[in-house]
Design a protein around this nucleic acid. Structure first.
Lengths: 256, 256
DNA sequence: CGTAAAATTGATCTGTCTCAACGTGGGTGG
DNA sequence: CCACCCACGTTGAGACAGATCAATTTTACG
């Protein structure tokens, strides 16, 4: 049981990192032999608290977590989702204080990666690059969310978000039959999209009526992903899957 | 003349990086001896084009540039500003294709840092950390912009943006007498804030009437920064100035 | 089961957009 | 050096997406 869980655990990190570039068998073996203790985090429980010291680097094995900020008037903005395979990258290593919260949305299984393990990861060039990649993709996703909230109406916003989740969950093998788990309430979707839960509800109803997107019982179903992508102009390039840049030496060769 | 410009040039990068943590004199000397050729970029000219290969890493010496995305309906979202001292960090090193454009807003003086120089920078631990810091702060700024656009009304949005610019420009010594250059049109502000230029105009008028913020002739003046910060709950923590995390060894000491 | 959170629907209100007109300043060609 | 021009700024009036307020139904869970 323990061994089985451990294997599942490491597989998802390898799978995630190989969404960038293939890893050598040594690197994979290294990742399969770090044996951090995983723990469960209850829904609504915080993993990182804004203003406090960042405890360590976390990897989500199962469940949805999110980064969020609270405003004085009580409103909340969810700034990103951490889905299985995602980790909060280098922040705790570089900077003293957290500028945002990270909290579990559903029951989460997370791993706390110890600082000395992170040093070992950084010492491996391919993993080092993959960590940079995570950071760059995170930035790109944030930009896309900014565009989403700033430029698109409620219908296109929701469509785009579900296209993104579909793509990200597919990479880690969590989409089956056009359907995937999204353990969010409509209120949480609202806090993500800068809408009210009332308006999210109405917009989901409209998308459902158009046969574009069903969201029920914490599961999303997209019958025709192409149609949904066309609607909101979803272009997955920004997720930079398998978008490894050529090494510096090759670029010299190309330049000369 | 050349020597003087070169000194000014390197000073701003050193100054920017020391906004994180002090550099050793060797590191500073290293940064003062990279001698990249700077070039001028005209307003509206692009430095990086979405979908194409990212040419190399750029450092802005003077002027404002921005990252932006275009949508099919012609609308534009400005996703971040590059002010003097800012560089577009590791993207070109890690990932093949640009997921956004970078373009000059005003006449810009920029430096193109060659890949092998970046390798040398990465080889120096303190500079390596500072590059991670840049990336982390970039992410934090994006989150704050998302909150801004998603949760605040036009008045608070503009107030918050100008508080941020005030803080960022002060770090590199570009604020004098509560006043600093912001070479943007109201239309560009609108594309930044997810508003129309008409509404930006009206909102600036209101802020001016309240004595909070003057924006005229490409210059912003904030007579009472405290009052403006209170209004929009600006908390500069997210810029992580001098927020260097303790090294891993110290954390072990603390833990034991 | 019972109870609270979440989803759903209706009616009304409002911040921001849209369309439209006019003012203004700086650059360019004659 | 003037006159035109065009981008930018400014102001007004009306329209609309989404918020707000409120009530009811459904679902999840102890």
């Amino acid at each position: 049981m323990e061994g089985k869980r451990r294997r599942i655990v490491d597989n998802i990190l390898v799978r995630k990192l190989e969404g960038f570039a293939p890893l050598s068998s040594e690197d994979k073996s290294f990742l399969n032999h770090i044996l951090p203790q995983s723990r469960l985090v209850a829904p609504r429980e915080d993993i990182v608290r804004q203003g406090l010291q960042i405890p360590c680097i976390h990897l989500v094995l199962d469940g949805f977590a999110c980064r969020y900020k609270l405003l004085a008037d009580g409103s909340r903005q969810i700034c990103s989702f951490l889905v299985p395979g995602d980790m909060c990258s280098m922040g705790s290593f570089i900077v003293r204080t957290a500028d945002h919260n990270i909290g579990a949305l559903s029951l989460c299984q997370v791993i706390e990666i110890e600082p000395q393990i992170v040093l070992q990861m950084l010492a491996r060039p391919a993993i080092n690059r993959a960590l940079w990649w995570i950071s760059i993709v995170h930035e790109a996703v944030l930009r896309e969310w900014l565009v989403n909230v700033s430029q698109r109406n409620a219908e296109l916003r929701l469509a785009h978000l579900f296209c993104e989740l579909h793509q990200r969950l597919e990479v880690v093998g969590l989409v089956r039959n056009n359907s995937f788990e999204v353990p969010l309430t409509q209120g949480e979707l609202a806090d993500t999209m800068g809408l009210t839960s009332v308006h999210v509800n109405r917009t989901l109803k409209s998308l459902r009526a158009q046969g574009l997107l069903e969201f029920k019982d914490k599961h999303a179903t997209i019958h025709n992903i192409e149609r949904l992508r066309d609607l909101c102009q979803f272009d997955p390039t920004y997720l930079h899957i398998h978008d490894n840049a050529p090494p510096v030496e090759d670029r010299f060769a190309k330049a000369s």
